[in-house]
Design a protein around this nucleic acid. Structure first.
Lengths: 139, 139
DNA sequence: TTATGTTTTGCAACGCTGTTGCAGGATAAA
DNA sequence: TTTATCCTGCAACAGCGTTGCAAAACATAA
């Protein structure tokens, strides 16, 4: 059993359960953003749909994962930088490949700041770029 | 009956039907991005849910409206600049107010260009900013 | 190790979103 | 007015996401 997984759960005062371990390990092994459906499919019949939903919700609240918007729906990805319940910093860019369909975080890129019209105040930004990823544009 | 509505339908070789007229007029009168549910609610029992879905799909394909991503789901907004079936330019910013919940297009702002990692090629960009809109930040 | 209180899970059920097939009805053009 | 084409409504379905509740699993302290 992965020690990182155990530590992550402990650090966020979450009980160590099989479902949580498996979901965290799935996020670690696949490196792209995953939807609820991806997880359900990947974990087989091992856990109830509802449990997966609740686990994702818990991880979101604890800052272990973050949402990734997509034209096809909601996906989730591990927070690499250290996030807490009250301090998130997800101003990195999300890239969705129109060829292979995978979505991942471009951690190295940050959203440039933008001058908003008078009176507008930004709290959160979310940039999704769609196109060809490095692997797919080689062909 | 609004002449703009009739022209818009004609220009895109779409038949002039009550449902299409009403949906276009709803987009014109409310100035924010609307979800399917908003339209369904706003139009009452006048049309079948399926018809509204199909109308939105048609308008999307014709370039009359465009998608607006949102943590809560999909919304749609009128294309102000002239878009055609094959030539869209929606690099403007979408703003969602966390107070009043309304989402609108900041047509004046464009997404700054970003240097992607080697091998990545962008086709489409989508920036959603969440925060307080001008009206809500006055209070 | 066992007993305890608290957290998680699975199940059943529900509402909402979005899609498809098909038959009947409306539209535009001759 | 006729006709071919396009739209609409209905029925049905699959998927997403949530809630309430009882049973099971967990962590802690004895």
């Amino acid at each position: 059993m992965n020690q990182f997984v155990k530590n992550t759960l402990k650090d966020h005062s979450l009980r160590n359960t099989l479902c949580r371990e498996d979901i965290l390990e799935t996020f670690l092994s696949r490196e792209v953003a995953l939807s609820h459906g991806d997880l359900e499919h990947s974990l087989g019949e091992k856990f109830d749909r509802v449990t997966i939903y609740r686990t994702l919700k818990t991880f979101l609240e604890k800052g272990i994962i973050h949402k990734v918007l997509d034209e096809e729906g909601m996906r989730y990805a591990l927070c690499k930088e250290r996030c807490t319940e009250h301090n998130h910093h997800h101003d990195h860019v999300h890239f969705k490949c129109s060829e292979c369909g995978q979505t991942n975080c471009l951690e190295s890129l940050h959203i440039p700041s933008i001058q908003l019209p008078a009176g507008y105040h930004a709290q959160e930004m979310n940039l999704l770029i769609q196109g060809l990823c490095a692997a797919c544009s080689e062909n």
